[in-house]
Design a binder for these strands. Structure first.
Lengths: 214, 214
DNA sequence: TAGATTGTTAATCGATTAACAATC
DNA sequence: TAGATTGTTAATCGATTAACAATC
């Protein structure tokens, strides 16, 4: 039962697989499945049972010999590991099409990510709403952050403005940035940035299509 | 000058770094920079010069001893490698917020990805437009594909409908799928799928925020 | 009990980094 | 020329897979 989280730094690859496990387990639970083995999980996800057991062993012992894993239990444990049982507050900067899509994605709220404000530079959208949040003018970002505790900043502005926004966020104490601008941000080392480079994966698709036909 | 593409399968990691190189080089070129060394590139991207040279060596020799790389040249070569000099046609299935965001992202068109049609199940959006494309009813998808050559299908429907859409796409000869539904698609082995699991990266951010504070 | 499956240690595989001769 | 930097081979590192004792 000893947790193995002690000190050891968890590889990035393991963390992203945790998110996959979480997703699959959520489907299994919704499907009313009660137990699952690493072999079955592996088949569903296209990875080896060994890898699953190895990954989980970073965090503890969640299974039972001869039986496998209780779906509802493993789901809850992984949810805890990912920090999805905590509440997170988010601000959105840049209410374009993508920002709007993210704001409206109700699953985030369900998982404990609460959007508390949205900002844009364009005066004409100010006062309108996304996902029941009133859009504020970008110039109010700093003062808002001073008065409201915010965990995560979601950046969906053009690349040219992203660094500037990141600077305000980090100066005002935001500790996590979810960045959709196609640019590498410089931030203090205690701030965590997750980049989502959507177009990179389209380019990879293009490459693999080409590779196949040659 | 011998290309090394011969047979050897390129690791997925290398492909996704190619997309990064492409992005950085595009910035350098726009900034009017003429030459760059692997050391400089590495510093900008936070990876080792060795890795850059190793990656590039999969595809040929693009540099010059004592000088480095000519930015415009390397940019063009990587663009070729990624297949971005070819024209690709795309259809979009699911015109929700995310679909709308992708359709409006003009950079794709600039890179040779042309959206030729968009589909949705909701009758009320049919006939309206996204990015100058008239939205069609989902039931017309199959017949459209029979009459028009399409390279890539972009899936932005809910998870529950994604497999069904993927089946139609692959049956009608689409060879690449860009999937935003949070589910693993089963497709024939000659079809290439790129998944973008946006929420996975938010979960990873949540994990790393938690990890830091413990 | 016999069969199944875990958690973990050891072996293998692949990817990253270091080193260096070649040469601009 | 001397200094810089490539492309590539070899060394190292880390991640994945296999194997197996423990045990439900």
């Amino acid at each position: 039962m000893t947790k193995k989280t002690d000190g050891k730094q968890i590889p990035q690859r393991v963390v992203s697989r945790l998110a996959m496990y979480y997703r699959v387990l959520s489907q299994l639970e919704q499907g009313g499945i009660e137990r699952v083995s690493s072999r079955e999980l592996g088949e569903m996800m296209g990875i080896t049972p060994s890898q699953i057991r190895q990954d989980l062993s970073y965090f503890g012992e969640f299974g039972q010999q001869g039986y496998g894993y209780r779906v509802s239990n493993l789901y809850k444990e992984i949810s805890k590991i990912l920090g999805l049982e905590k509440q997170h507050t988010m601000v959105l900067i840049g209410v374009g099409n993508l920002g709007r899509a993210l704001a409206s994605y109700t699953n985030f709220r369900r998982r404990g990510f609460e959007l508390v404000a949205a900002f844009d530079v364009r005066e004409e959208v100010v006062g309108k709403k996304v996902a029941d949040i009133e859009i504020k003018l970008m110039t109010e970002l700093r003062s808002f952050l001073k008065e409201n505790p915010v965990d995560i900043g979601v950046i969906t502005v053009p690349a040219s403005q992203a660094q500037q926004v990141a600077d305000i966020l980090t100066q005002e104490g935001v500790k996590g940035i979810w960045n959709f601008a196609p640019i590498k941000l410089s931030v203090p080392e205690n701030v965590i940035v997750e980049h989502v480079h959507i177009s990179d994966s389209l380019f990879a698709l293009s490459f693999r299509l080409r590779e196949k036909n040659s």
